[in-house]
């Protein structure tokens, strides 16, 4: 039974990758998304250098201080700025390109001829609903992170230097990056089918939310397993990020970590959303 579930997960992921590779209209929005993110990162990276320093220099100086305009301290600021723009970027930009890709996927699945203009028109019509879904997902993510921060603050107060209590402290504090990943997996699972339903059935956010939770209830372990397997690809990035913090002799490693993080995260999103939408469409056809 378990093996069957595993096979279904890997088969779904494999099918999603094949779908993405074989259908440029589905893949292109994710490539564009990667391009936009890398372009912004490139601008941020070169911001302390001439000629961009003319624009960004005064801003960085005012907000963070002169030292962040110089090598290698600028590499301490780069991930912070990048992290700060992630939330608005995901809600407003990423959600649109995910919407565009899934619209193409649904159209191809229905055997329609994919026209760029039609896709954009349909995606624009559904964008507000997808935006609401993305916003709610981030709200939930934010609340869970706030709760986790309370747990972390409590863990800091643990005075034990050995035993189970100390072990709990270390797990909570040292594994914060992995806890973050786990929280993302949980939130992605809860919202897994909402965007696919909005796109496939042209539904509004609240009915889609209800239907999405129903769908999740029917195929929880499959969905949860699929998302976990996909998100595990992000673990090497976390390790690389921790390495770049420890290995201070190469500050430029921070940039490499950010580039890889962008590419891997977009690849995960592409595979997960394609797999889940395909799965939803199949379930719908079977009904």
């Amino acid at each position: 039974m378990k093996t069957n579930q595993d096979q279904r997960i890997f088969s779904a992921l494999n099918h999603a990758i094949t779908t993405l590779a074989g259908n440029p209209p589905i893949l292109l929005p994710y490539i564009t998304l990667a391009f936009i993110q890398l372009f912004i990162l490139e601008i941020f990276f070169f911001s302390p250098q001439f000629p961009l320093s003319f624009i960004f220099g005064p801003i960085v100086r005012k907000l963070w201080g002169e030292q962040f305009l110089h090598y290698p301290v600028n590499f301490m600021l780069l991930p912070r700025i990048w992290q700060a723009i992630q939330t608005p970027f995901y809600i407003f930009v990423s959600s649109f390109f995910i919407c565009l890709s899934l619209t193409a996927l649904v159209a191809i699945n229905e055997g329609q001829t994919v026209k760029k203009e039609d896709l954009r028109k349909k995606a624009r019509g559904l964008y507000i609903q997808v935006l609401a879904a993305a916003f709610c997902a981030f709200l939930l993510l934010f609340l869970i992170f706030q709760l986790f921060e309370l747990v972390q603050n409590r863990a800091v107060l643990i005075r034990a230097t050995s035993g189970v209590t100390y072990l709990i402290k270390r797990i909570v504090l040292d594994g914060s990056a992995y806890w973050g990943l786990a929280i993302s997996i949980v939130v992605t699972t809860i919202f897994a089918y909402i965007i696919p339903i909005i796109i496939a059935d042209s539904r509004k956010f609240f009915p889609a939310f209800k239907a999405g939770l129903k769908m999740l209830g029917r195929s929880f372990w499959f969905t949860f397993g699929l998302i976990i397997v996909a998100y595990l690809c992000y673990v090497p990035i976390i390790l690389l990020r921790q390495l770049s913090l420890v290995y201070t002799a190469m500050p430029d490693l921070t940039l490499l970590t950010l580039i890889l993080s962008i590419l891997v995260m977009i690849a995960i999103d592409a595979v997960v959303y394609t797999a889940l939408t395909t799965f939803y469409l199949m379930q719908k056809e079977n009904q």
Partner: peptide, 29 residues
């Protein structure tokens, strides 16, 4: 799609090269 992909790579690499050339002997370098 290939054309778009190549265009994106050209923009990213081109911009990077231009900005690097500006700083080849600059203060940051």
């Amino acid at each position: 799609m290939k054309k778009t992909l190549i265009l994106y790579i050209e923009i990213l690499v081109g911009l990077g090269l231009v900005l690097m050339v500006f700083n080849i002997n600059g203060d940051y370098a």
